Amino acid sequence: MTPRRQGVKLWKNNHEAIMTLVIILLIAGLFNVFSSTFVMAERDYGSPYAFLLRHAVSMILGLLLCYVGARVDYHKWRSLIMPVTVVLMACLLVVLLFTDPVNGARRWIPLPGFSFQPAEFAKLVSIMLAGYYISFRNGQGKEVNLFNRQLGVVGAMALLVYVEPDMGTACIVMGIPILMLVVGGLHFSKLKWLLLGGLILVGFMIYMQPYRLERLMVTYDPWPYAQDQGYQTVRSLMSIGSGGLFGMGIGQGLSKYDYLPEAHTDFAFAVFSQEMGFFVVLAILIVYMLFCRYAAAIAMQAQDMYGQMLAVGVLLLIGGQAVVNLIMVSGMIPVVGVPLPFISYGGTSLVMSLFAIGILVNISRQTTMIKEKELIREALRREPKLIRRTGPHLRRVK
């Protein structure tokens, strides 16, 4: 029999693929941040590069943390999760009790030269808490439960974020760990309580803030409300559609001229679509899909449950936010304030996302190293003379 021909591989391993795709998105984000902010930056700060420089600094800091996350064994984060959670909860309380509101919300802790948004790191900490709980129960040979202490802590963090108010981020902080429980083996019979609780929560939120029902109704037909509740959705759809197949060109779009609110943050995709056109947008969508494909491969190949759950959490964090942002900007769901990973402007969000990528890379690196050691052991078992032929370093493989 002839040996089976191997397909062409673009990358040597999954983490090389992940980093390549993230770098592509970071480069696209740099172009988009500058293009969507230079008018506002010139008007408000006297320099067209003000937002770009801040974004670049955040990207450099995020890449440094990405390097740390990639080099530090991901198991070590499990022992630090509780003190980190305590510090984060304290930061969330500081935001609510001791900071001044900006645009009606308390979300940032002002620091010299920049501001810090603790709610963004609550997303990653909630993933670590859920991964810790699921792996612990798996190690004991027990099923995961919907009601547990770790999820209770996650719920408390989500509540503090919701009160800021930041409902979109609160839903992510609470939603991803619940999805991780489902992936981690939550019994089907317990899902009914999850669905019931979700319906009750949605009803309560609409009762407390009736405008949310109006926003939901406007989503499915925003055009009659183009001057009030549907203004942002209509302007977003018009920006996306005006890009056509090839776009208006970098810096040539009209959305940045106070035409589309939050054009550089939550609605960055609309600006990108207007200036780059359908084909470039399609390429970026393919990059996100490839990211999800390789992140899923890392999760499936991870050597322990903790690694699997962390990888699933990062996949849901990056891929899930991308999906929510894209369908929000496209007018299919109400505006919820979720950024597009690596494309939208936002310092803390970018730093947190890159740190999460570093952890994902480390999970893949650990898996690759274990597989390589297994291959060497197998080769030595089959042909012991390899030790004499290939050098003494193989004797160190345990």
Rank of each mutant, 00 (worst) to 15 (best):
170 A>Q: 04
118 P>E: 07
146 L>R: 09
157 M>G: 05
124 L>M: 13
154 V>S: 05
120 E>R: 03
229 Q>S: 10
113 G>Y: 06
205 M>T: 10
171 C>E: 02
219 T>Y: 01
238 M>N: 14
227 Q>A: 13
169 T>P: 06
234 V>F: 01
160 L>Q: 05
236 S>Y: 01
106 R>L: 03
173 V>Q: 02
179 L>T: 08
206 I>V: 12
182 V>I: 15
188 F>M: 15
175 G>S: 11
130 A>H: 00
136 F>H: 11
138 N>F: 00
159 L>E: 01
159 L>S: 10
128 M>P: 00
194 L>H: 01
183 V>Y: 13
114 F>R: 06
160 L>M: 08
238 M>W: 13
177 P>T: 07
224 P>N: 10
130 A>I: 04
197 G>S: 08
207 Y>F: 15
202 V>H: 13
193 W>N: 13
154 V>E: 02
175 G>W: 12
119 A>C: 08
121 F>C: 09
126 S>C: 10
155 G>N: 04
206 I>L: 15
107 R>H: 08
228 D>P: 00
167 M>G: 11
186 L>N: 04
226 A>M: 09
149 R>Q: 12
169 T>C: 07
137 R>L: 00
159 L>C: 05
118 P>N: 03
135 S>H: 03
201 L>F: 13
134 I>N: 05
223 W>T: 00
169 T>I: 09
112 P>F: 08
192 K>Y: 10
202 V>K: 05
110 P>A: 12
183 V>I: 15
116 F>C: 15
137 R>G: 01
145 N>D: 14
174 M>Q: 13
106 R>P: 01
117 Q>R: 10
118 P>T: 06
118 P>R: 07
139 G>E: 05
107 R>E: 15
189 S>I: 12
218 V>H: 02
183 V>A: 13
161 V>R: 06
122 A>M: 03
124 L>F: 12
148 N>H: 11
207 Y>Q: 09
154 V>T: 10
199 L>D: 14
200 I>P: 02
191 L>E: 09
158 A>S: 14
156 A>P: 04
120 E>F: 04
144 V>I: 04
237 L>S: 04
143 E>W: 01
170 A>Y: 03
155 G>S: 11
209 Q>C: 12
